[in-house]
Design a protein around this nucleic acid. Structure first.
Lengths: 223, 223
DNA sequence: GATTCGATATCGAAT
DNA sequence: ATTCGATGTCGAATC
């Protein structure tokens, strides 16, 4: 990883186009082509290039770091006006993040413990592709209804209700009114609740589980 | 800005929970509280803390950087096993990014030049709040129909069609069938096209404009 | 503070 | 390569 502290100007052209006037920033270039320019505020880089980009140093009036991505064509140019520090760090890292509390784990919980939805609920499919879209969980209730679950790991917003409503409508075209839609999340925004109730959809409160032993993320094998 | 190269372990608990085993990473702490941990791949930090977090150094068996955020309560701990470099950079930066090619500029273009949608189109409202959601542009056509525009700066996906469909349905409840919905974007995915046509919604091809003189982003005032 | 939605979103999975 | 949806999304604008 290459790290540079410098006063620079930045020019970007690609999916959008931007300019950034002269100022001090931290620049990081990763071996996979990722390119980050950080100002002294915010979590997000002010400019960047994603992995797979190619970088080179051009010597014009000032030295210029040029990073190019193909497909989509994107160019990032960093004009180095004053370089305060350059550093190369050969980082050795064989570990991957393990994360728990995700939507995927909510789904696992429901398959292992379907009664958290309701007595008699039978989950049948996970990530089931339908005519338009992909349903989180598709199952049946004790009355033989088809049940669509839309899961959210955090407070569900309008967006989630629109998803659920769309899936239910599509399945109703095929299976008639014996289709129920249930939004499964820790809570609902006011707007989500309003639309959900208007559309005759349901809500089940469920928190994403935080497992004790680590979970997602490829576990390193011993050999 | 504080930059550290170190071999470290990372523990996070908050909205979710994660563990990252020992390895070499670049750590950046910004004066606004932003905290970034970068591995040698990807654009995204493997762990982070957003602006407003408070950081301190604790001396346990190893030195540990602890960053805490309130609301939601989130804790990030970086156990420093071996520190290769520590550097402080007093970055002076008064510039902000100016960006062009955004959805906001598509909207401006349509208000200044409504015929890019169709002859006789009259845009009336921008970001208009309705019963459930916020419509990008609300206007009328030459036949007195109400027209809902959903704008996307890039290829529109199913998500965008669901938004548009939801807005049109809500407005039809109030205004009857004299409501049209038009998705405005450079292109459509196959799935978006299918749902759009099934629902009797329309598509207008429009690229986000890239202005010559810079555009968005507060322009610096002279004094 | 809550809600809604855009983003040069990024990322991964499935087709 | 395209499509689709999650994300500890982040961030801004509005209410």
């Amino acid at each position: 990883m290459l790290t540079i502290f410098a006063r620079c100007k930045v020019h970007y052209d690609g999916r959008a186009k931007s300019e950034l006037g002269s100022g001090d920033r931290v620049i990081i270039v990763k071996p996979d082509g990722s390119f980050l320019i950080h100002q002294s505020k915010k979590r997000e880089p002010v400019n960047w290039q994603p992995p797979g980009s190619r970088v080179r140093l051009e010597l014009r009036e000032n030295p210029v770091l040029v990073s190019i991505r193909r497909k989509p064509k994107e160019t990032l140019e960093v004009e180095l006006e004053e370089v305060y520090m350059v550093s190369v760090f050969r980082a050795e890292d064989y570990e991957e993040l393990t994360l728990t509390g995700s939507e995927a784990e909510m789904a696992e919980l429901i398959f292992e413990n379907p009664e958290v939805i309701e007595p008699g609920f039978k989950p049948l499919f996970r990530e089931k592709t339908i005519k338009s879209g992909i349903v989180d969980i598709l199952g049946r209730d004790s009355n033989g209804n088809i049940v669509v679950l839309e899961l959210k790991r955090r407070r569900a917003e309008l967006h989630a209700v629109r998803q659920l409503k769309s899936y239910v409508e599509i399945l109703k075209e095929e299976y008639g009114d014996k289709v129920r839609g249930i939004l499964v999340a820790p809570s609902l925004t006011s707007g989500a609740k309003r639309l959900l109730e208007k559309e005759g959809l349901e809500f089940r409160k469920l928190e994403p589980p935080k497992k004790k032993g680590k979970t997602k993320g490829k576990q390193k094998t011993l050999f």
